[in-house]
Amino acid sequence: MEAGGGGAEEEEEQVMSEVHLGCPPYFSGLHVSRFSFSSRPLGSSGGDDGDGSSGSVLIAATSGSCGSPDAVAVDEDGDLVLDRKRRRNKHARSDYHLLTIQHGVTSSLKSVGLQVWKAALLLADFVLHKSFTSSNFDGVTAIEVGAGTDRGADILDNCLANVHNNSGTLKFDEAKVCVRELDWKMSWPPPVGTYDPSYPSLRYLWSADDIEEAEKATVLFAADVIYSDDLTDLFFDTVKKLMSSGAKKVLYLALEKRYNFSLDELDVVANGYTHFRSFFATQEERGDAVDRDEPGLVGRQIDPAEVPQYIREYERGKDLEIWEIEYSPEQKLQ
């Protein structure tokens, strides 16, 4: 798959992330949602906790995650959806922040990179938790590997806009965040071009310095990239090449298991997930890893219960997972 525009895309079936269910239906173009978090996760004790036990009131949902001041949310039966608004009191902490995300409300499968998916919010919770409780991510160079469909000026422009929209809130230097096009179908390193931010066609090309910096990275992030076996193949091919180049790297990958009815097995199965798991061994399976088609990658599933929820505007559900995957150098790539 690859991102693309034109009339053919308009005829394709549209998909919608559960994260955007409160957004205006049939909304065309890009929408803005606001996601709130603080340094205290939901359900923590004291002050205004996440379960609403400290003076919360019910109001008609006029913003929710979509942040649209004139949107009123209703369910499929047309009944008004109520949201909780927390009443400030003298004991409440004032460390709440808003992430402003510009996104598509629906998209074709080719452009799902324009939407926000639940696995990305779980990954954000993981990063927030590490940042609040440890120094693991202090000063690191990290690469967000993307979703395979994050190609084309429209999606990359949107990524760049979201970097700009949140630089003030998160207090980071925009100049240190680079948005580049990474086509999983092309071998690493990507071709070097003449980067020029004033021209759309040259805005997302890699320079030699970019590639050198990427190979020095120690952390890779990816969210919701497991939904197509073909893309999973390309993803792991790219990841292996990145992880075997330059500094030692660790990949943190969040996903949502997706189930379909299989005629072969006459059951509802997560075939895409099974294919994903074939690319690496756990520590327990490591003894058999040399017999796998893709040796060298070792993974550990992180219990979501170890990752408190900081971002309020989503429900995790039981099908979200997060994995820590490393490249084991003593097992050589075939």
Rank of each mutant, 00 (worst) to 15 (best):
S167D: 03
D230A: 13
D196W: 03
D267V: 01
V269Q: 03
W184I: 08
V219Q: 12
P200S: 14
E181R: 11
Y259I: 06
D264N: 08
L242Q: 05
F261L: 00
S207L: 01
D264M: 03
S198L: 12
D229G: 01
E212H: 07
E256L: 06
T238S: 14
A217H: 07
N162I: 08
P190S: 08
S167T: 05
N271F: 00
V250E: 09
D264T: 03
V192Q: 12
S201P: 00
S244A: 12
V192E: 15
N166W: 10
L182G: 07
N162P: 10
L251F: 05
P189M: 12
F236D: 04
A175C: 09
F236M: 12
L220E: 01
V163A: 11
K257V: 06
W188D: 11
D229M: 03
C178K: 12
Y199I: 05
S228F: 03
N260C: 06
Y273G: 02
C178N: 06
K185V: 08
D183N: 14
E212Q: 14
L220P: 01
D230S: 13
K249P: 06
L251N: 04
E265D: 14
E213D: 08
V219C: 09
W184D: 06
A270Y: 01
S262Y: 03
Y199W: 00
K240M: 11
T194M: 14
L266T: 00
T218I: 02
T194Y: 10
S167Q: 07
A214V: 02
A175I: 08
L242N: 04
V177D: 04
F221L: 15
N271S: 11
V269N: 02
Y199G: 00
D183H: 10
V250T: 15
L251G: 04
D210G: 03
I226F: 06
V163R: 10
D209G: 01
L263G: 00
K248V: 14
N165H: 12
N165T: 04
S228A: 14
L263A: 02
L160M: 13
H164V: 09
L202D: 05
N165A: 15
L231F: 10
K216D: 08
V163L: 11
S245R: 05
P200V: 06
N260Q: 11
L255S: 07
S201A: 14
L266H: 00
A161N: 07
N162H: 11
L263S: 01
L182W: 12
V163P: 02
L255Q: 02
K216M: 05
V269G: 01
M186A: 15
T232W: 04
S167G: 03
S244G: 07
L253F: 04
